[in-house]
Design a protein around this nucleic acid. Structure first.
Length: 233
DNA sequence: ATAGTCACCTGAGCGC
DNA sequence: TGCGCTCAGGTGACTA
């Protein structure tokens, strides 16, 4: 976390997003912020007591404080002179999942000849960003694809379905305010309600909502992976 | 080059 | 009640 003294006094003129990074544009460069698993931003009054997990305060000129809190410290904060996209964290990122660039043709091309599991492929930020473990599980269920199947051996029509499933899953989750598992909260401090709509994640051993088969759990890339052995080929 | 594993960190949840 | 163990996850670093 190397933030130069020079940011003091600069104007915030835009706040953008790329992948899971928040980009705060200042005069000469950009603050690149990742909230990790458990981080959040809050705007508090000056004099507000500092909690054990509060790590950074930016004092704004109207007296309010832009505060970064991150209990598990998986987040990060970086500085990059313009343009932000030249930062090494952003330079090699894949396409945005809700953009037109994330198409069936694109993902088919990205999977061609790959032996890595399809789940790992769609979670690879060099391919497509924003697909975390929960949404990867859900999207693969929606598309009817077994998570461990080699990316290069998934039928083209199923990959096309997967692209749609990823978009639908993410859009639905955003609509519901995100997915609260333990302590996640949206920008307004409220929990996200997509967790109530999870079909497979966190439901290992329970019946599939479609066919009632027992949902199976495996580990892929060190992450919990749940699927229906009957619905997902 | 590609694929697989590990570490980071802390709170929650569990068994004893 | 309280201790100690395990687990969760995004992502970069490392190994094979």
């Amino acid at each position: 976390m190397q933030i130069p003294e020079g940011v003091v006094g600069q104007t915030i003129y835009a706040v953008r997003r790329r992948a899971k990074y928040v980009l705060i544009e200042l005069d000469t460069g950009c603050l690149i912020l990742h909230l990790g698993m458990s981080g959040h931003i809050s705007i508090v009054n000056q004099g507000e007591s500092i909690g054990v997990h509060d790590h950074v305060d930016f004092v704004l000129d109207h007296g309010l404080i832009f505060r970064l809190t991150d209990p598990r410290r998986f987040g990060s904060l970086h500085w990059q002179p313009h343009p932000a996209e030249s930062h090494w964290l952003l330079a090699d990122l894949g396409v945005e999942p809700l953009s037109d660039a994330f198409s069936a043709a694109y993902l088919i091309d990205q999977c061609r000849g790959r032996k890595v599991a399809i789940k790992n492929r769609i979670m690879d930020a060099k391919v497509v960003v924003g697909v975390g473990n929960i949404y990867a599980n859900e999207a693969l269920f929606r598309a009817g694809i077994r998570p461990r199947r080699a990316a290069g051996r998934v039928r083209r029509d199923l990959i096309a379905r997967l692209v749609d499933a990823i978009k639908e899953t993410l859009e639905r989750a955003i609509d519901k305010g995100g997915t609260t598992i333990n302590d996640f909260a949206a920008t307004d401090g409220k929990p996200g309600y997509f967790s109530q709509e999870l079909s497979v994640y966190g439901r290992a051993g329970e019946p599939c909502l479609v066919c009632s088969s027992n949902l199976k759990e495996i580990r892929l890339g060190g992450r919990s992976t749940v699927y229906c052995p009957s619905c997902q080929a």
